[in-house]
Design a protein around this nucleic acid. Structure first.
Lengths: 217, 217
DNA sequence: AAGAAAATGGCACCGAGTGGCAGTATGCCA
DNA sequence: TGGCATACTGCCACTCGGTGCCATTTTCTT
């Protein structure tokens, strides 16, 4: 399951690599979900995929990063989507649309893997760390794109970086609600996962200006 | 240097602990700055402070966390400050004021240590990780305070968490500019460090609504 | 002065991650 | 089709951060 035949057109070596790459992520996610991130050793995963530990580190840079493969895919898609967007009108809206588009465009079984990933992240400090850093990394790429598209320098115009923070902040809020809001096992079927996540993220974006304007008393 | 006599009123045991705690942070920051985070081993630090490795981990939970002691102090002060604030009127402004107040209220030599810390963070992935997680942790505490003060639940009212994201986002933007914006060696003298940082963070907050409203074309 | 409580030290140990090199598979070209 | 160059992989030894356990020392209390 979840190890679709890699693109037939690619050279043999490349296909093999893709399969290993994917198999590692799948096996790791399964074991981590079953028994917890800390309780599963790298050796175990590596044995199951029949690969040496040394080779593992040529595919993934750390134990954490293999656990977060699904999230990494999303960021890759988002950066690609936004890069391909041409910007006019409201910038925050454009950033938002690219994100929801990326989400709804993910694989069939991505929501299942992503949900499992988010649950791992929610319960483990080291994974949370890695997840934040990964997001921050792609946030920088988004800001670079913004600079390019707007012809402005983020070091002078604070707003670009702020937009980055806001976009990824809204994402975190939306994703958190999505992860918390569904009973066990749901999200594995259909495209409901993607649409719902997209909706949650949308709600977060909607609330941004209200949040800024929020008053006590 | 930078190891002020701990409060005389405290019991001896407590004073000793504080001194060790502080000595570890100082020595660590010095060595890391001299030779880089990865090139300094824990054993080295521990030897210099004349403490066992085992004991080190009763003071700091990781090698990273001792490097980020100065940043931790800021978050502690911020949470305390905001907790003591009573909320009325614009919430974002209150959050912002508490932060700048916390900054300007830091130790005399805090800016020096904090600047050194930020430079380490800027050049090291693992440290960036830890720094982000630490911020996220205190962000949660701030949101909890918000919930308490406003009598609302962050799971229902998305705006509370969004405010958390925005505040810490603005902080990151401001702090980044502050760190980048000063020549070598500056920031060690006077209270300039604190005032300037506070100003940079302020600028970031000022730009939030402009960022949200930013339009292309 | 004595004993409880807290802090420390020392050790053995685990597992993630790396460097280096030898072996093996794959792609390419004659 | 054979053979060579170039990935890619496996193995091994090693470093270092981090933890569990228990004995020892230090501080607080009365």
């Amino acid at each position: 399951m979840a190890t679709p035949t890699p693109d037939r057109a690619l050279p043999l070596r490349e296909r093999k690599k893709q399969r290993t790459f994917r198999a590692l992520a799948d096996v790791a996610l399964a074991r981590f979900t079953e028994r917890g991130f800390d309780e599963v050793t790298l050796e175990e995963i590596v044995d199951e995929v029949e690969i040496s530990k040394r080779t593992f580190f040529r595919y993934y840079s750390s134990k954490e990063s293999v656990a977060l493969a699904a999230e990494a895919e999303l960021w890759l898609a988002y950066v690609a989507e936004f890069t391909a967007t041409d910007l006019h009108g409201d910038v925050l809206t454009a950033l938002r649309t690219a994100l929801t588009t990326a989400i709804t465009g993910m694989d069939e079984d991505w929501p299942r893997r992503f949900l499992a990933t988010r649950r791992l992240v929610a319960g483990h400090n080291g994974l949370r760390k890695h997840s934040l850093v990964m997001a921050a990394h792609h946030q920088e790429q988004i800001v670079e794109q913004l600079e390019a598209k707007l012809g402005r320098d983020g070091r002078e115009d604070v707003r670009l970086r702020l937009l980055g923070e806001i976009v990824f902040g809204a994402y975190r809020v939306g994703a958190k609600n999505w992860t918390a809001g569904r009973g066990k096992g749901a999200g594995s079927r259909g495209k409901g996962g993607r649409a719902t996540l997209s909706a949650r993220v949308g709600e977060a974006f909607d609330a941004v200006s209200d949040a800024v304007a929020l008053a006590a008393d």
